[in-house]
Computed example of a mutant assay.
Amino acid sequence: MHDGQALVAGLDLGTQSVKLVVYDPASREVLATQGRALDLIAGADGSREQHPADWLDAIRGCFAALDPALRGRIAALGVSGQQHGFVPLDAQGAVLAPAKLWCDTSTSAQCGPIMDAVGGAAACIAQAGNPILAGYTASKLPWTKAHRPEVYARLAAIALPHDYINLWLTGQRWMEHGDASGTGWLDVRTRTWSPALLRATAPDRDLAACLPPLVEPDALVPVLPAIAEELGLSPDVRVSAGGGDNMMAAIGTGCVAPGRLAMSLGTSGTLFAYSDVPVVSDTGAWAAFCDSTGGWLPLICTMNCTVATEQVARMFGFATREGDAHIDATPPGAGGLTLLPFLNGERTPDLPLGRGVLAGLTPQT
């Protein structure tokens, strides 16, 4: 370790960018931030995908832009990642296809059959705490079998986005309970994989063999020496369990005790609260997720938040930062014109095939 107070780094793999922050826990100061934009592969069928290799390139770029003296003082690194993504890996850990993301609605037709195989949505909730929604990881597996059979045949391991980054950093596979609860396969009450949901998703194979071990929130794994050298880090760096972006946001905002409620407005919009007992909706009105501290994180997510403002700006030919000026230049209420912004389909309410609607148009609008 280089001279100076030990620092920690946070790495966030978002939908639109990779972000890196270096923090001094002694002075409670953020010392540096870096970010790199990511492209989204969007299809007319609702598919939303990214190449995991692009994630790694963005991470390399973030670290390369840091002051080498700061890099050398980093003692620990934690990864936050977009939830629900499906990274298919072969037996050697190589990526077999682009990762299908949380906002991918092309798998909506695969949700019903999974739930039907366990007796319907209510039975699914009784088994694992959540229904199977289009965004969750589970439906991406039968979609892959139907549309990418060569990938399904070679599939040996499944990683969530943040798991894949951890694998690259450490050479080891694991998953923590918060992010795992967004797969649709975790029984959130017991924090164990649900045999019924695994069988329902892949009756022709042992799906449990494709999933990594589950670890506790305080797990620490050493970085691979070759990766430490590539990124300019000390070989003594430890990588934490990390977690899904919402679970990490809960920790960052102090939403780790009963009575706290946090809202996050990003590509998606989420509202979540901490509980020290499972909070399951019999109707699936909210996501009954685990958090990443040993508790639970009941959560509501809308798929169209800042992505809607960005897409509207693109459609009408202005930059997002110019939006406020356009709003200020028009009277309140927009003459009764209303936009239902389900441009990517929607998760709350559960309308994965939903579309945006512009209502209230008149000849004078």
Rank of each mutant, 00 (worst) to 15 (best):
R189D: 10
N304Y: 10
L207P: 09
P235C: 04
R205W: 05
V277H: 15
G182R: 08
W193K: 08
V277F: 13
A257F: 00
P213R: 04
L207A: 03
C305L: 08
T253I: 02
W296N: 11
L198Q: 02
A288S: 15
G184R: 10
A196Y: 12
M303E: 08
V277G: 10
A262W: 02
T267A: 02
T270D: 04
V237C: 10
G284P: 11
L271E: 11
S240M: 12
N304V: 01
A200S: 02
L167M: 02
T270P: 06
A241D: 00
A202Q: 04
G266R: 06
P278F: 12
H162N: 04
Y274H: 14
I227G: 12
R260S: 00
G269Y: 06
F272C: 04
M247C: 11
F272N: 01
G294P: 05
L299G: 01
G178C: 10
T283G: 14
G252E: 00
G269W: 08
V239C: 13
A249L: 07
V256A: 05
G178D: 10
S240N: 11
T192W: 05
S268I: 03
G252M: 04
V280E: 01
E230K: 13
P212G: 03
L186M: 07
M175A: 15
A257G: 00
N304E: 09
R199D: 02
I227C: 09
G244R: 03
D236M: 15
Y164N: 14
A202T: 04
A180Y: 05
W185L: 10
T293E: 00
M263C: 05
V237T: 03
G178V: 14
S234H: 06
P235F: 08
L271V: 13
I165D: 07
A180V: 06
G269H: 00
V188M: 11
L224P: 11
D179R: 15
S275C: 15
G269C: 06
M248Q: 05
V237I: 08
S234D: 10
E216I: 12
L271S: 07
R260Q: 01
S275A: 15
W296H: 15
R191N: 01
S268C: 09
A228T: 03
N304D: 03
T170A: 14
P217L: 05
G266I: 03
H162G: 09
W286Q: 13
A250L: 01
T192A: 13
C255I: 12
P278N: 07
I251Q: 04
D218A: 15
E176N: 03
G232H: 05
L169M: 08
V221F: 15
R173V: 13
L271Q: 03
D291E: 00
W168Y: 14
G171A: 14
L169W: 11
P258L: 02
